[in-house]
Structure formats: structure tokens, C-alpha cells
């Protein structure tokens, strides 16, 4: 079970990373979401002591799953949610200012801008 959990986390993280490397801004955001999911899954499996839900009344003698990791995962999920939402609207604004969703166009704009600024400053010495 430990190995399976670790592998699943690895797959989530790896696929997320793969998407982070794409040209499409939206895929990049998907990548971030997947990577966050990997972290959430890791958090909750850090309490692999599975058992009944930690809600009173508790059955005697049966293992209780770790409530703290659940609380942490919850918090992490919500934080990731808020940030992903912000990131998505950022994608939209990047689109409206560059009129492209392609990172290549955006990098090109960056290089172009940098060069135009540099050429304004005449090199000296």
C-alpha cells in the first residue's frame, strides 16, 4: 500500500510537471493543480493509519484515522483552490495583454522588450 500510494503521488507529480512544461498557459495551470493534488494526496497518506472516521462516538478498539492530516489536507486543498482560481484569472489577463495563450509568443515578447530597453541604453566603456 505504501508503495502504491507513493507511486500514485509520483504519477500525479510527474504528469503535473509534464503539463507545466507545455506551451499552453491553460495546461500550465492544470499542471499546477495536479502538482497540488499530489501534495494533498501525500499529506493524507502521511496518515496511512486508516480506520474509522474520527467522529465521536468512537468505536472501542478500532483504529481511528489521523484527524490532523485530514485537517491539514483540507486546509491545503482550500489554499490550492484559492490560488488556482487566481492563477486562472491571471491567465486571462495575460491573454488580453499578449493576445496569445502560447508561452513561446510570451517569451518572445519578453526578449523583444528586454532588447528594446537595452538598445535604448547606449553601451559605454
Amino acid at each position: 500500500m505504501i508503495l502504491v500510494s507513493a507511486l500514485t503521488i509520483a504519477v500525479l507529480f510527474g504528469v503535473g510537471s509534464y503539463l507545466l512544461l507545455q506551451r499552453d498557459l491553460i495546461r500550465v495551470v492544470v499542471g499546477i493543480i495536479l502538482v497540488s493534488n499530489a501534495a494533498n494526496l501525500f499529506l493524507i497518506s502521511a496518515g496511512l493509519s486508516r480506520g474509522q472516521a474520527p467522529i465521536y462516538p468512537l468505536e472501542e478498539g478500532v483504529e481511528v484515522s489521523d484527524p490532523l492530516v485530514q485537517a491539514m489536507t483540507l486546509t491545503a486543498i482550500v489554499i490550492a483552490f484559492g490560488i488556482s482560481a487566481l492563477l486562472m484569472s491571471l491567465v486571462y489577463r495575460v491573454y488580453t495583454s499578449h493576445l496569445s495563450l502560447n508561452l513561446e509568443d510570451i517569451s518572445e515578447a519578453e526578449v523583444r522588450e528586454e532588447e528594446s530597453i537595452e538598445s535604448r541604453e547606449v553601451a559605454e566603456d
Binding site: 507545466l20 498557459l25 500550465v28 499546477i32 490560488i83 487566481l86 492563477l87 491571471l90 491567465v91 489577463r93 495575460v94 495583454s97 499578449h98 510570451i106 515578447a109 519578453e110 522588450e113
Partner: peptide, 12 residues
């Protein structure tokens, strides 16, 4: 454009 681009890079 510069700032938004920066924000996106920074955030990701």
C-alpha cells in the same frame, strides 16, 4: 504586459 507576465512566471 510586463507585469502580468512577471506575475504569471512568479506565481507558477
Amino acid at each position: 504586459a510586463r507585469q502580468l507576465r512577471a506575475a504569471f512566471i512568479f506565481a507558477v
